[in-house]
Design a protein around this nucleic acid. Structure first.
Lengths: 127, 127
DNA sequence: ACAGAAAACAGGAATGATTACTGTTTTTCA
DNA sequence: TGAAAAACAGTAATCATTCCTGTTTTCTGT
C-alpha cells in the first residue's frame, strides 16, 4: 500500500515542514535535514512532498523564483511574497467571496483557494 | 535604450498574448506564431514576455504543471485553474479586503494581489 | 535615404528545479 | 524470522527557462 507506511525519513521530513513558518522549498527542507540524516537524498524529499500533497497534508502556496514553496498549515489563509528577499509570510484570511457560490452554481468544483499578495515586506522596504 | 524599441516580432508576440483569453504559456505563444514567423526563436518569446512583465503590460497569473501562465489583462480579477485540463479561466474579482490596509500599516508595499481558485472546471466535472 | 550604433534576434548551449530509474535497504506482517 | 512490499540513495534524465555569441533589424543623426 503505497504511501501508507511509516518511514523514519518520511516522518523527519514532515516534522521539518510542519515546524517552520518559512513556507519552505524542497531544497530548504533537504538542507535542514542533511546534517541530522547524512545519507538523505534530495529525491526522497521531493517524493515525500509529492505524497504529502496527494494526502492533503500540505499545500503549495507560491512559486518564488522558480521554486515551489509549501505549507503544512492547510487552513484557509492568505500569503505575502516579498519580491526582494523571497520571504513568504502568513496573513489572516478574511474574505469570503460571492465568487465561490457563483462558481459552484456553474459546475466548477473548488478544491482550494489561493490568495497571494506580491510586493516588498516591511524589512526590505526599510533598506 | 533597452526595451523601448519597436520590433516586428515583439509586436506579434504581444498581440498574440493580448488577443487570447487562454492565459497562455511561453510555449503556447511560440506555437501560435511559428507558422506565421518561421524563424521565430523560443528564446525571443521568453525574452519579450520577461520584458512585458517589467513594463507591467502583462502579469503572471499561475503556474500550471510547471509552466508559467500569463495574462495581458492586468486589471484586478481572479482566476480559476482546472487541475484536470490545465485550463485557466477569468473570474470577476470582487473582494477588497481589510488585509490590504493592514499590510500597508505594517510597512508592506503591495504591488499585486493574486487570487487563484484550484479545482475542476464544469467541462471536466461532467466527464 | 544612408551609415554607424544600439537593440533585438536565432540557434544552440547551459542552468536549475523536478522527476524517473535501478539496484539496495527498511519496513511490514504473516 | 523471512520473504514481499515499500521506501530509499544516487545518479541520470527531463523540461522550462535563461544565457551566450555571432548575425540581423531598428534607430538616429546627417
Amino acid at each position: 500500500m503505497k504511501g501508507h507506511n511509516y518511514s523514519s525519513k518520511r516522518e523527519a521530513i514532515f516534522k521539518t515542514i510542519a515546524s517552520t513558518k518559512s513556507h519552505p522549498s524542497a531544497a530548504w527542507v533537504y538542507e535542514q535535514l542533511k546534517d541530522e540524516i547524512p545519507n538523505l537524498s534530495l529525491g526522497t524529499v521531493y517524493r515525500n512532498i509529492s505524497l504529502f500533497k496527494e494526502q492533503g497534508k500540505i499545500i503549495t502556496v507560491a512559486n518564488v523564483n522558480g521554486e515551489e514553496r509549501i505549507d503544512a498549515d492547510t487552513s484557509d489563509h492568505a500569503h505575502f511574497v516579498c519580491e526582494a528577499c523571497g520571504g513568504v509570510y502568513d496573513l489572516i484570511q478574511s474574505e469570503q467571496s460571492p465568487l465561490e457560490k457563483e462558481l459552484s452554481q456553474k459546475g466548477f468544483v473548488i478544491k482550494r483557494k489561493n490568495v497571494v499578495f506580491h510586493g516588498t515586506c516591511s524589512g526590505c522596504t526599510k533598506n
